[in-house]
């Protein structure tokens, strides 16, 4: 694990520091990041109030439908989306595929998502994210997984959920797991923290930091299955700092209106009156998949180690 950067000692600007990597995620808090596959969708997302867009070739629901190997997007598509909007642009690399990450950094994306939604390129190793100046967000299903990603240099965490299902149950499970495990750490004494680090298979320094601060050292978003304004607000009430919405917007009946509604519900996540108001007349949500009918080998959340 790399220690945090010392404060700059001269006026010479320093890029790629842990502080500016984590800092960009801080600026996204309370916001919605939307999956987009075309410049036109990116403009719709920006107009709806997205704080950032995630550029990818197919939304997770289509990756499920089409099957095959899912990879990093065509650079032309990423460039087109960067051109289309003024908000930050994120893009996905396969787990462990450090060359896809190098390519995305060279394209100037603002964040890379090392994502289980794409087909993993390495079944043992994630990308060594400290080697990059661009910040990374990674998925996690529990606290140990989140801390292992931080040890590899991730600057932001998202709970995984089960992408492309329109079913929020896995996102709920992962948010409750991460928040609950942190709450347990806060009640432990120093000796117990060593055992907890072993149990979570995570560096004790990071475990201790969570115990002291009562949260992850980075911003925690949620992802995977969010389809309605109420889903988004529920995730914030469970302790998410913001939400990623993938298939839930552009696989619904009225993407513009649904995207706006999810943004507004995320801002007023504790006000059921606002959530009710923005939920009216949204049209069809994406159909959704029940998790018990999903074959084991199609559960993306199990990817990553």
């Amino acid at each position: 694990m790399r220690p945090s950067d010392p404060p700059p000692s001269s006026a010479a600007p320093q890029t790629g520091t842990t502080r500016v990597k984590r800092g960009l995620a801080d600026m996204l808090k309370g916001g919605v990041i939307m999956d987009v596959v075309t410049p036109e969708q990116a403009r719709i997302a920006e107009e709806a109030g997205a704080v950032a867009v995630m550029a990818l070739e197919r939304v997770p629901a289509d990756i499920r439908r089409d099957g095959g190997v899912a990879r990093m997007s065509d650079p032309d598509m990423v460039d087109g989306i960067i051109e289309a909007v003024s908000i930050p642009v994120m893009a996905k690399a396969r787990i462990g595929h450090f060359v896809e990450a190098q390519v995305l950094q060279s394209l100037g994306v603002d964040y890379i998502d090392e994502s289980e939604v794409l087909t993993p390129a390495d079944e043992a190793h994630h990308i060594d994210k400290w080697r990059f100046d661009v910040p990374f967000v990674c998925g996690a299903t529990n606290l140990g997984e989140a801390l292992r990603r931080l040890a590899e240099g991730a600057a932001m965490i998202r709970s995984k959920g089960e992408a492309g299902t329109g079913n929020v149950v896995e996102a709920t499970r992962h948010m409750r797991a991460i928040a609950g495990e942190i709450r347990r750490l806060t009640t432990m004494d120093e000796t117990e923290l060593y055992a907890a680090a072993k149990e979570h298979r995570a560096p004790v320094e990071l475990v201790r930091e969570c115990a002291e601060t009562g949260r992850l050292p980075v911003v925690l978003f949620t992802a995977g299955g969010i389809a309605t304004p109420a889903d988004a607000a529920m995730m914030l009430q469970l302790g998410a700092d913001g939400v990623f919405v993938g298939s839930g917007i552009f696989k619904s009946g009225n993407p513009e209106q649904r995207a706006r509604a999810i943004v507004e519900a995320t801002t007023h996540f504790e006000d059921p009156g606002v959530i009710a108001k923005v939920s009216r007349g949204l049209g069809e949500a994406m159909v959704g998949i029940n998790l018990d009918t999903l074959p084991e080998d199609q559960k993306y959340a199990q990817r990553g180690w």
């Binding site: 950067d5 404060p7 700059p8 006026a11 010479a12 600007p13 890029t15 790629g16 520091t17 930050p88």
Partner: peptide, 11 residues
């Protein structure tokens, strides 16, 4: 510039 140009400094 973009995020890659974000920087820490003293001012």
């Amino acid at each position: 510039g973009r995020q890659l140009d974000s920087f820490d400094t003293r001012l």
